[in-house]
């Protein structure tokens, strides 16, 4: 791992009297895949909204390496796929490029060669409603990565998929990531997903969300479908589950 790319320092935020996240400190190194794992209501999505500037933190700081501009640092993949029903698949994928000022022609020329790898060849002129859940998710992922931004923010990208499609998508993402090593933050409440995909995992408590644990996942890749790693992965999973299930969210003196 080369240096730290993104650093959150004692970030806190709430709505009115309701504290949503408390004193969250975490970092992301260049080329690192980090998951943020927590129960629903632990403020995971709020954390992304803070990074994206949708909300302002009550306290704490967000710092990018080299003082980079936060507005162009993140390629965001929202929950569900957020594909626009009224745009054809190709136009959904090029959306970010066009908003960045690229001409439609140039944007398409950049995207078209990647369609095959994403299993979308022949569907570029289809509308999202004509595609299966897995294809929609791959289109949303492609829309995210073609923006060529320094950090990927993936907010439960596979949460709405059926179990089988989700496993296929996890394998697909792992394969892509292994080739490209994008610096990525993944929000999930799926422990197995976090272990299979991440270099490091932060575990959040229930609301107000705090970091109650940090796990290094030092397993070889590819991990998905690798029988030899199953035992080691299960051990980490068990540790995380134990932490998540046996933590009393009301206790003030939680030790990770």
């Amino acid at each position: 791992m080369s240096g730290v790319l993104l650093e959150l320092d004692r970030l806190a935020m709430g709505f009115g009297d309701l504290a949503v996240i408390e004193e969250i400190t975490m970092h992301l190194a260049r080329g690192e895949f980090v998951s943020i794992l927590g129960p629903s209501g632990s403020g995971k999505s709020t954390l992304f909204k803070l990074l994206l500037g949708e909300h302002r933190p009550a306290s704490g700081t967000i710092a990018l390496a080299g003082g980079g501009d936060r507005r162009s640092a993140f390629a965001y993949m929202p929950q569900r796929d957020a594909l626009m029903a009224w745009r054809r698949i190709i136009d959904n994928i090029t959306l970010g490029l066009e908003l960045a000022g690229m001409s439609r022609r140039t944007a398409r020329r950049k995207v078209v060669p990647m369609l095959g790898r994403f299993g979308l060849e022949g569907f570029e002129r289809s509308y999202p409603d004509q595609l299966s859940g897995g294809m929609r998710q791959r289109a949303a992922l492609l829309r995210t990565i073609v923006q060529d931004r320094p950090i990927l923010l993936l907010d439960e990208p596979f949460g709405a998929l059926d179990a089988l499609t989700r496993m296929q998508m996890q394998g697909f993402l792992e394969g892509l990531w292994t080739q490209n090593r994008w610096s990525s933050l993944l929000i999930t409440h799926d422990v197995r997903e976090a272990v299979l995909l991440s270099d490091r995992i932060y575990v959040l408590s229930a609301r107000p969300g705090r970091v109650i644990g940090e796990f290094d996942v030092a397993l070889d890749r590819p991990r998905i479908g690798s029988a030899g790693l199953a035992a080691a992965a299960s051990a980490i999973e068990a540790q995380i589950l134990d932490l998540l299930l046996n933590t009393n969210p009301d206790a003030k003196d939680i030790v990770s």
Binding site: K49, L52, G53, E54, R71, S72, F74, A75, Y76, P78, Q79, R80, A82, M84, W86, L95, G96, L99, A100, Q147, L153
Partner: peptide, 26 residues
């Protein structure tokens, strides 16, 4: 309009008018 679509557009750098034309109007 789906809030996530608007958040997505803003993350891509769209201002209010772009969000309106690209998401709210359709």
């Amino acid at each position: 309009t789906e809030r996530e679509i608007e958040a997505l557009l803003r993350s891509m750098g769209a201002g209010r008018l772009r969000v309106f034309l690209l998401a709210r109007l359709p």
